[in-house]
């Protein structure tokens, strides 16, 4: 018979072993997340109060970067364009993919359905950078496919990427094209998750297809809609960078920049690290709000034993 103190000693030792086990398995993650995620946030926060160009000594200037941030035309156009991108992406990210997802589910032939699905998804797996460079060739002013088509119909050719009237739309078209297939697949998965009984019940109650969709299916796929909307926002502020960098380099006259591009310009073109960090911190705050909304509305990110 073990004494009570020996028992609790044993239990404590077992618990210590559990702690050690978790620690050892978690250690690699701890190191990588600390060095490449947590340290950078703190460091960015600190740098946003500094004036620095990677080389010279750091000088501290307090809130000056934040105070002057919104008087810079480049920052303002980056912010404004980010919102314009969000609006312009919605048809490509939400409306068209949702429409296609609804339509493809009406196709009776399973084989046809899966072939269409396979092909529509292909742009998703390709590199954004390579796609953009191929599009650069399609948009090319004198030899590009688009202008060759226009001139063959006797129309004037267009400088797609350097004309202020077209450049923004040209970037949006490439980003939209890249995401139609991916989002269609996500909507399909959402729609297939809606229980058949719900639709049948609606039909029994006298609802037609149109009503059944808006009253039953659409509310039930709301989480997918929210999720895709958030990805559109993040894409507008951040990932569209690749397209912008390759297609227009932010031009003509800042009309196609987004927040990520502005940060890049400040950091790696004019080496104004303090300002770049301040804009980055501002962008993160924007993300944080959006992500909290997303996690709240989708759920599932909590820890359960």
């Amino acid at each position: 018979m073990l004494s009570r103190s020996a028992m609790s000693d044993l239990r404590r030792r077992a618990q210590r072993q559990q702690n050690l086990g978790l620690f050892l398995f978690f250690l690699p993650a701890l190191i990588f997340y600390a060095v490449f995620k947590y340290f950078p946030i703190i460091y960015s926060g600190i740098l946003s109060f500094a004036k620095w160009n990677f080389v010279k000594d750091i000088s501290w200037i307090g809130f000056k970067n934040y105070a002057t941030m919104f008087s810079k035309p480049m920052v303002l156009s980056g912010l404004g364009n980010t919102f314009r991108y969000i609006m312009a992406f919605l048809p490509f990210f939400v409306v068209i993919p949702l429409l296609l997802a609804v339509l493809i589910l009406y196709i009776k032939s399973r084989a046809a359905q899966s072939i269409f699905k396979t092909f529509i998804f292909i742009p998703t797996v390709l590199a954004m950078s390579i796609c953009c460079m191929v599009w650069l060739w399609i948009y090319s002013p004198s030899f590009g496919f688009l202008n060759r088509m226009l001139t063959s119909f006797g129309m004037e050719s267009i400088s797609w990427l350097s004309d202020k009237a077209y450049a923004f739309g040209a970037v949006v078209a490439v980003c939209g094209w890249k995401f139609i297939g991916q989002n269609m697949i996500l909507f399909m998965a959402g729609l297939l998750n809606v229980p058949e009984q719900c639709i049948e019940a609606a039909h029994i109650d006298g609802a037609n297809e149109w009503q059944a969709f808006w009253r039953v299916r659409f509310p039930l796929i709301m989480p997918t809609v929210v999720y895709i909307f958030i990805t559109a926002v993040i894409f507008a502020a951040d990932r569209a960078f690749t397209a912008i960098h390759i297609l227009t380099a932010g031009g003509p006259s800042y009309s196609t920049t987004n927040l990520a591009y502005v940060i890049y310009e400040y950091a790696f073109k004019s080496y104004n690290i303090g300002m770049a960090s301040a804009i980055a911190v501002f962008t993160s705050a924007l993300y944080l709000v959006l992500t909290i909304i997303m996690m709240k509305s989708l759920g599932g990110f909590e820890y359960h034993d």
Binding site: F36, Y43, S44, D238, L259, A267, I273, T291
Partner: peptide
């Protein structure tokens, strides 16, 4: 929730 641009410069 940490965007790439925040980690970009420190990294």
């Amino acid at each position: 929730v940490i965007p790439f641009q925040v980690t970009m410069i420190p990294n």
